[in-house]
Design a protein around this nucleic acid. Structure first.
Lengths: 195, 195
DNA sequence: TGTCGATTTTGACATAATTCAAAACAACGT
DNA sequence: ACGTTGTTTTGAATTATGTCAAAATCGACA
């Protein structure tokens, strides 16, 4: 149980864990370093792990037939990231998950997680609560995408995640918000000229 | 355990249930009829139940400040629907959930579900798997919204859910796909004139 | 079965956002 | 510190989609 305290404290925000639970969980965690621009998930390979970010930043994205990429998610410290669809069905991924900076992560494999959930309901519960929260979050995003203009989406994102706006490249943010990089640049210029 | 077989078989697609489990689950299910145009969830009221559709059709939607509505989800036979964000946090809803037809539903309350999950890990597991699947589904939708044109989104939806296209009003479908009702009408006309 | 309200269609026009290509700028590795 | 490569900015031209208002159609139910 060297340095799993971050991820374990994270779990404890949802379910109480005693020392034995912690040990159980700790035994399935593997810590790794990841270089900037390195992929931890790639299309056609099964996404076998969920990745918890100890330090650094990632994005997951899809590249369509025209070579245009669409960012699904960012993850910085204390977030999980993966190609979730590939992970839960253990089928080949369609996304890239790429480090935007030099990062340190902790990974848990699908098999280990399922086994752990089977033998300790606290973890079953934890992963249920996380999945439910993720789903609710994703629905909120669908809503913003539907209802708001490009400028409104940018402002909303900036409001919610100011630290991410600072930290990720503009084109990645644009592709998350569903607009071209050029247009985001124009929006920012317009906003800067006010105020 | 009158007529809970549909919903129970649905659960059994994810976890095996013995007779006792079924009885336990059955005890928290309440069956109700819902008239066309009736709301089962409304903004500002807490969404206290998850609703399983035995027969009929629903949609959940958000109405923004300009009075424009955005459909989050459709549900027909064997689907669950709710304002999930309101449900899991037990906070006031921001969505309407409205019957598109005369419907029969089965409802389970947040309190009962949480209690049941606490005492029977099979249900904890079931709700975890469902939440995970829902999340993966929602991510796929984000992807379509980001990557595809209005026409492509329509074609994709028709491919995936032909029965829903037939069954729901056009304006509701347009608001799900993120386009104006008029534009969807034009897309259909254009498509019809080919082939 | 006819009527009224709700839904869909149509066309003209307005606007948001994209595309492309070039220039300016930043930042990374050696 | 330098050059190279990746990123952001700009402006002009283009396209997808929205808006509005009127007409046509549908469908529930008295």
């Amino acid at each position: 149980m060297k340095d799993h305290q971050n991820i374990i404290n994270n779990i404890k925000r949802y379910v109480p864990l005693d020392e034995n639970d912690e040990k159980q969980f700790s035994s399935i965690v593997r810590t790794t370093k990841v270089k900037r621009r390195q992929f931890i998930v790639q299309p056609n390979f099964v996404c076998s792990h969920q990745t918890y970010v100890v330090k650094g930043a990632f994005r997951s994205y899809f590249v369509n037939d025209d070579g245009i990429d669409h960012t699904i998610q960012f993850a910085i410290e204390d977030w999980f990231i993966s190609d979730f669809n590939s992970y839960i069905n253990q089928t080949p991924a369609s996304l890239f998950v790429e480090a935007l900076e030099y990062s340190i992560v902790q990974q848990i494999s699908f098999g280990d997680v399922e086994e752990l959930c089977g033998k300790n309901p606290k973890f079953e519960r934890f992963f249920r609560l996380v999945a439910q929260k993720s789903f609710a979050y994703s629905q909120r995003r669908v809503l913003s995408n539907l209802g708001k203009s490009a400028e409104e989406r940018y402002l909303e994102f900036q409001e919610l995640y100011p630290s991410i706006v600072q930290r990720v490249p503009q084109y990645a943010l644009a592709s998350y918000l569903g607009m071209s990089a050029e247009f985001l640049s124009k929006i920012r210029k317009r906003l800067a000229s006010k105020s």
